[in-house]
Design a protein around this nucleic acid. Sequence first.
DNA 1: TCAAAACAGACTAAATTAGTCAAGATTAGA
DNA 2: TCTAATCTTGACTAATTTAGTCTGTTTTGA
Lengths: 155, 155
Amino acid sequence: MARGVTLKISTRGEYGIRIMLDLAIHQDEGPVVLKSIAERQALSESYLEQLISSLRKSGLVIGHRGAQGGYQLAKDPAEIKIGDILRVLEGPIAPVKCVSEEISDNFCSNSEKCATKLFWERLRDSIVSVIDSTSLAELAANSKKLNQTDPMYYI
Amino acid sequence: MARGVTLKISTRGEYGIRIMLDLAIHQDEGPVVLKSIAERQALSESYLEQLISSLRKSGLVIGHRGAQGGYQLAKDPAEIKIGDILRVLEGPIAPVKCVSEEISDNFCSNSEKCATKLFWERLRDSIVSVIDSTSLAELAANSKKLNQTDPMYYI
DNA sequence: TCAAAACAGACTAAATTAGTCAAGATTAGA
DNA sequence: TCTAATCTTGACTAATTTAGTCTGTTTTGA
């Protein structure tokens, strides 16, 4: 059986980060229209609409309707962590459900005597520390450094 | 939309670890029949057959056929890392495919100029360091410590 | 020989993923 | 005020993956 890949995220999180990074890079150009993001990233505008809708409802971006409208980051890129984006688009971080970040509904009666639970918690904490210590501002700075001679930046 | 959970593994990996831990704990009782593992863990024997088949083909366990048969670990539990089990049952570690542990088929032409790739690599390495630094022997020792007064151990 | 066990692999239902599509609401500017 | 640009909502769908089930075959110790 051709298996996939372990501990992966879906396109929601992956594309969501690209949307946010695009907004961070074009921050001082006024509202950015979704169509231009979709074109730069070569992704479906309809799909991105779905994703940015979640980002807006969660307060990470602001939408301006009507002509001359578009989207903007709601906060300073330094204040937005990659973990924030992933949690909005993919849910709480948890390699297995018994160590979810959200309050559990004690479905597992053996929690206190569970040896693997300690392991899963260790893994979760390691993931959390990486995604919550990286900000959009860092990624944007990296992107500029990598592409400073290039008219078109890549994400 | 009710979303799931970020960076999770499937039941293949989760149950696979429980199988292996069960085998480690019952190591000196001779071959362990799958049925008894299925009963202790309250999981479907048919499904576990599928999983242990992969574990056997990959050389992590040995199967003894016929009457008085069963399964045994192929190596010392201290030599078996959790990462070995996860890779067999779930595939290579990769939060997104462009940073898969396996050789990539350069599907992404922008790799060198990709700011997010550096981030994904950091996340992958952090995950890998946790799963490859924990052995079955450690989990088994933990389990014994947590359940030493209990006639039935829990995993 | 026979019962207990591993082994093989086709099959399936449900859930998730990765979108598409159509219709409406809001606003800036002519 | 009109209208084009843009956001916003949400129902819908095809493909894939997950999480198993089921039926049978082979091997082996007693």
